[in-house]
Computed example of a mutant assay.
Amino acid sequence: VDADAIVAELPRDETIDFVACMAARLPGEMIAAILGLPRFEVPYFTRHVQTIARAVSPVYPQADHTEIESAAIRLFAYVENHLLMRLGMPHGDLLSTLVADWQTHPTISFTSLVHQVLGLIVGGIDTTRVGFAALVPLLAEHPAAWAAVKADPRLIPGAVAEALRYEPSVGSIARVTTAPVAIGDVTLPAGVVLRVSLLSALREPDLYADPDRFDIRRSDHPRLHPVFGTGPHRCIGEML
Rank of each mutant, 00 (worst) to 15 (best):
A3Q: 15
D4I: 11
A5K: 13
A5E: 15
I6V: 15
L10R: 10
P11D: 00
D13Q: 12
E14A: 06
T15N: 02
I16V: 12
F18E: 08
C21D: 14
A24T: 11
A32G: 05
A32F: 05
T51A: 14
I52F: 09
S57M: 03
P58A: 05
Y60I: 09
Y60T: 09
Q62G: 10
A71M: 14
A71R: 14
A77Q: 15
N81K: 15
M85Q: 14
G88L: 04
G88I: 08
H91L: 14
V99S: 02
D101E: 00
Q103H: 00
T104M: 00
T104N: 01
H105E: 07
F110L: 02
F110V: 07
S112V: 08
I121S: 06
G123W: 04
G123Q: 04
I125Q: 12
I125L: 10
I125N: 11
T127H: 05
G131N: 02
E141H: 11
P143K: 05
A144W: 03
K150G: 06
A159I: 03
V160A: 08
L164I: 05
Y166D: 04
V170E: 03
S172M: 11
A174T: 07
A174L: 08
V176K: 07
T178E: 09
A179E: 13
G184Q: 12
D185V: 10
D185W: 07
L188I: 10
L194W: 01
V196P: 02
S197R: 05
P205K: 03
P205G: 02
D212V: 00
R217W: 00
H221V: 01
H225M: 04
H225I: 03
H233C: 09
E238Q: 13
